[in-house]
Design a protein around this nucleic acid. Sequence first.
DNA 1: TGCCATCTTATGGGATATCATGGAAATTTA
DNA 2: TAAATTTCCATGATATCCCATAAGATGGCA
Lengths: 165, 165
Amino acid sequence: MIRRFRGESLNKVDAKGRVSVPAAFRRVLEEGDPDFSEGSYPNFVIVYGGVRGNCLEGYTINSITKVDKLISKLPRFSREREILERFINTQSTYMQLDETGRIVLSIRLKEKIGIKDEAIFAGMGEKFQIWEPTNYQNEVDALNTSFENLPEDENPFLKLDQLQD
Amino acid sequence: MIRRFRGESLNKVDAKGRVSVPAAFRRVLEEGDPDFSEGSYPNFVIVYGGVRGNCLEGYTINSITKVDKLISKLPRFSREREILERFINTQSTYMQLDETGRIVLSIRLKEKIGIKDEAIFAGMGEKFQIWEPTNYQNEVDALNTSFENLPEDENPFLKLDQLQD
DNA sequence: TGCCATCTTATGGGATATCATGGAAATTTA
DNA sequence: TAAATTTCCATGATATCCCATAAGATGGCA
């Protein structure tokens, strides 16, 4: 089975910026790190740029490597590549879980998304997101509204099956 | 895992031109220098020519070697090759980290990119860049603008997925 | 099915190491 | 020998490591 990021969790952020990554996510990060072995702690990548930039996004090493490989196919000095490198490499950072399954969010990262002493972890399949709780609620509400306003023929649930191969 | 240059960092440049290279970048430089060994300090290359020339670009020994090989594939006396060699070979220099992880930017290099007493280091995957902070902000803004103005079908993020396989 | 032992998880505190930075001394270069 | 460079030492801030604990989840077993 290929495990994916699922579920959400509200965790405390302490004075040093430490937060527990939900245990279920840790399993996914372990599976997604080719260098992980029993007794070590998985590495992964947090991207903090992104189009809207009000949350952090965590990627396993394997999935970020896929992205990196795609970027590397673009001509070395092209503008396109520059844009992608700027958003995906410049605005990201390696992370490693510690012994107790925590990471530390630096002051910069916390400021970036407005986190104080709590953070929401939200599973998104190949990635997970970290939100400041209020912002998260707003995002969920906004999604609900925009979903309710969609015409029937654009209902993504219905469109899903049409994509079939 | 092949570590790449990720993240950004604002560091002080002192009167002698000394700047700390971000610790995360040092790890990449070490991995990318075939002659590096525990207890020594990695060598790398700084290119100060380049197409737009308002920043410096740092390459690991391994990645500049890759670029050199690409250049070597061009016809020996072609104009193309001449240009690339001028920008990438002539206008570049070897550097070595010192004991405390710093390099010194010569007056020439500082003038080249307008640096006074602060420098931004920006990870770009296979290379990193050094910018004067204001210029960097302008570049980021320009990138954002040019990104926002792209027609949907040229969105580099979406194109990424189309490159798939 | 109810109880206890054990493991895992989320969390906290203190000690230690690393990082970025500054200054002085030693050495080289012009 | 003055200026510039390199080497060496010093320090505050930050990040990392190590140990501790309480609550919940899990599993075995009578």
